[in-house]
Amino acid sequence: MTRHTRILMSVLYWAFVVYLFVPLVLMVMMGFKDSRFIGFPINAWTTEWYLGVFQNAQVLTVFAYSMAIAISSTLLSLVIGTWVAVFLGPARFRGKLIVFALTCLPAVIPGIISAISLRIFARLLSIEPGMLAIILGHTVHNVPFVALVVMARLSTQPRSHVEAARDLGADALVAFFRVTLPYLKPALIGAGIFCMLLSFDDFVRAFFLGGYQPTLPVLIFAMLRSGMSPEINAISTIVLILTAVLGLWAERSMRRLNKGV
């Protein structure tokens, strides 16, 4: 690589970083602006928007609601996804590829289509729009991710681990819970956090499947319709920090768990 191309490459890279972060920085800055009007110049700073968020009962309720949905759908996805991976991974049967493709399909179907179809399906099953419907919707969407990650991890587990457990007196179930499941731990943590973020972030499914109680993205959307306000910036900043911290922590702990195993 010549010197010129190297300089060009790094300039392009930094331009990309700026493009990535300037909007975020702007959003964070506006959350501290002491004015209802979003935009420059910023003449005075304040933390009142943030205080407002923490005192706003509706925001807090919605946040808790979104968290509850994220946690429940993640737990469900982990159980079902692991179940799928464990039974589909090592099995050999005709049409396995088709079953596998069907398993992965919900991950690639456009959100709006799956949201509408799930809404219709939920009504058919007489599931009221609301928390349960959203949880089920998110679970359908997230199971493929869990299944894929767990299957990948499972394929690296030496067969002898399970055999050793069986040899030492464990039946298939005990061997799974005491040997295979701990081996899957890094995959489950990683997939779990990914699912939490996907669920927490989801707007389309929550919008179509939700009842009167909005999730956080739906609430932000509703607040936007009555005009942009620095309070939205404050909420968004808090969400940004929480998700970034969670994501980075997950990445780090996964790397540590993966080492040497």
């Binding site: 055999e163 040899d167 701990p182």
Partner: peptide, 13 residues
Amino acid sequence: VNMVFQDYALFPH
């Protein structure tokens, strides 16, 4: 019957 495996198969966790 118990077995010593070729790769030892010790439980890493």
